[in-house]
């Protein structure tokens, strides 16, 4: 089983975590077009590669970022939101 390193709780099996998807900047709803907003809501950059993702350590309630290669399933680094 994959090991993921929580920035607070250290290396743990991935079953202790919930996946939160890719980190995506939200456009300003007050100024963006409908199409831009729909793109934010629905579209994903599904292309394989290194992405920054949300992960959640369930037992401690810790959200953090992970930079992960979605082909090799290799976690490059993890860190807490500022």
């Amino acid at each position: 089983m994959k090991i993921l390193t929580c920035p607070v709780n250290g290396p743990r099996p991935v079953s202790e975590f919930a996946y939160g998807g890719e980190v995506r900047p939200m456009p300003d709803g007050a100024t963006c077009t409908d199409r831009e907003w729909a793109d934010y809501v629905f579209n994903r950059s599904g292309v394989p590669g290194v992405k920054i993702e949300w992960w959640y350590h369930i037992a401690s309630g810790t959200w953090f970022y992970a930079e992960r290669d979605t082909v090799a399933d290799r976690v490059i680094r993890t860190w807490l939101p500022a």
């Binding site: 089983m1 919930a18 993702e53 082909v71 399933d73």
Partner: peptide, 10 residues
């Protein structure tokens, strides 16, 4: 449960 472009087993 998470995005992955591979066919590994778990």
């Amino acid at each position: 449960p998470y995005e992955l472009h591979a066919t590994r087993s778990t």
